[in-house]
Nucleic acid binder design. Structure first.
Lengths: 211, 211
DNA sequence: GTCTATATAAGGATAGAC
DNA sequence: GTCTATCCTTATATAGAC
């Protein structure tokens, strides 16, 4: 995750500002956090911040950028790569691996914080909406659609439903459970039952589409 | 919906303040809206607002209250009522009726605005988290669980999975699609494909659990 | 219950010395 | 690149007249 930030040598302070801003924005939202508050946590004076960012909004923009860069960075496999990967995998392997990767993402504090910021700002800020719809919803569903299509062609799963339909049925509960998970975590509440639901869902889905 | 507010006679201004605050908070969040902005839209001076609410936060609290009152108002049927209702219904009737009611809710602008406010404030404000977890997640899932349990007892659906599991599989995609729907609507984007997804989901689920 | 006027704090941002 | 000092605007909230 270190590489998501400007290098330590040239951008140490800028990096710290971003870290602190992400932490604070993810709790109180953009409007609920002052430049004063950010710089106080970073340990610099307000005026010093403006050597790194022209405006407060530019900080927020950089945060969105971190998210989209990270999304494009650990990019999903190309259609060709996907085809080759799925040659050696059955449905359970595929779902299990996808889920592990997903868990890695939501246990990355930085990405979950930015996810929260996107959530908070989505109604106020068109840019946040774009990121959510493009990178989270559309990106994930499109990818799963291709995967299920290939699995159908390889006769590894039923083809009674369209690949897109399957993608939706598989992924949407995951989205909703992730949202609930983050909310429970926020108050350090019990998440065991939810974990079981996730596993139950994968099992249910797998049972359903297997030949 | 009129009845959600204080009566016109005694609380006309208070009512207007709440309406305007809901509209503005649902776009820009609590911190992103000033008392000045609210009173300007209402057409009174700032000081006049404090005759109706002691603090700005009290406005927000009242908004949460509206939501929980409405939720408890059109309350879900009791177990006995549910049993009697389900006597005369098969699964498709039940799902279809539930969905119509759900559509009524999300087409109520006031409730969707408050839903957005809850979304925005959930990380900053414990009270918002409580409302979401209690009234939205838990309330819905618990209700569906009892319904599916009854339907299983009446041998109208398969009992291969637990009622809770079925509740989750049915409702979570609806949650996620509703979230996406509200986001698309916000930019007046196309929601036809999403509508089809919802109907597809209901069909898929129904096919799966029917005997 | 609304107004004018005001208190007091906090907000984003800039100028200029070092 | 950071500092001190400052500008100007906006914020929440109150006092007291009508």
């Amino acid at each position: 995750m270190e590489t998501m930030f400007p290098s330590r040598e040239t951008g140490q302070t800028k990096r710290r500002i971003l870290e602190v801003a992400i932490e604070l924005f993810s709790r109180n939202g953009y409007s609920g956090v002052s430049v004063r508050e950010i710089t106080k946590h970073v340990g610099i004076k307000e005026s010093a911040l403006y050597n790194h960012f022209k405006t407060k909004d530019e900080i927020l923009q950089s945060i969105y950028q971190l998210f989209t860069n990270a999304s494009e960075g650990n990019s999903l496999p190309t259609p060709e790569q996907l085809e080759s990967i799925l040659q050696h995998m059955d449905l359970d392997d595929f779902l299990r691996q996808g889920f592990e990767q997903f868990k890695g993402t939501i246990e990355n504090p930085l990405l979950t914080q930015i996810w929260r910021i996107l959530n908070i700002e989505q109604y106020r800020d068109q840019r946040a909406r774009e990121v959510i719809l493009t990178y989270i919803y559309k990106g994930t569903i499109d990818f799963l659609e291709s995967a299920f299509q290939l699995l159908q062609q390889q006769k590894k799963i039923k083809d009674a439903y369209s690949p897109r339909m399957l993608a939706v049925e598989y992924q949407y509960p995951i989205f909703a459970m992730m949202t609930e998970y983050l909310l429970l975590k926020f108050d350090n509440k019990e998440t065991d039952e939810l974990q079981q639901r996730v596993e139950g869902h994968i099992q249910y889905f797998s049972d359903y589409v297997k030949l």
